[in-house]
Amino acid sequence: MQAEEKLTYETWPAAPERATLEAKNKFLGFWLFLGGETVLFSSLFATYLALKDKVPDTSQPLAKDLFELPLTLVATMLLLTSSLTSVYAMYHMKNFAFKKMMLWLGVTVLLGLGFLGLEVYEFNMYVHEGHKFTSSAFGSAFYSLVGFHGAHVTFGLGWILALMIRNYKRGLNLYNAPKFYVASLYWHFIDVVWVFIFTVVYLMGMVG
């Protein structure tokens, strides 16, 4: 099958994300890339665990003084829901329902923006409580781990938005279907990383 072909609902393949050789390569390459990203975040998690609550003096806040469940729980729910909506988007992509796919991608982006807003609010709050990037090793490790994730969310949002704008007028074909698919894979990965951050940083942080 050719990437440029104009397709209809009837001729649209069952797995459009792997229908051409280019798409197959992209699909596999991206999974491998996520493997590398997993190691990247593992290293950051290990660093965080080694430096958790390591502060120069007692005036600095520790994890148990900082984190609050309601705020992070809302953020977690937003991001988890956005993963679900991106699944809906891919479901419609496989059914050649371009408009519906765009709609659900739009919802995904909005939820992601909500998450990002909460994160900015949260970071701002911590800084006012004296927990800064430069104030302690704990601060450096916390903002690096959570901030790296935040940067991934930002990049993911930019990516999905760029795909939506670029393909707004032309609909689905086998050239852009793998692109949408891979972007949604990325979004799921970010979500999985957040589940670990929520557990390791926030839940384990609150129990001390």
Binding site: A50, K54, P56, F133, S136, A137, S140
Partner: peptide, 18 residues
């Protein structure tokens, strides 16, 4: 890079680093 250029303290023992 963060330690040397952006004021972080990952490896600075006096700031809790390792």
């Amino acid at each position: 890079m963060f330690d040397r250029l952006f004021g972080a303290n990952f490896f600075d023992v006096t700031m809790g680093g390792n």
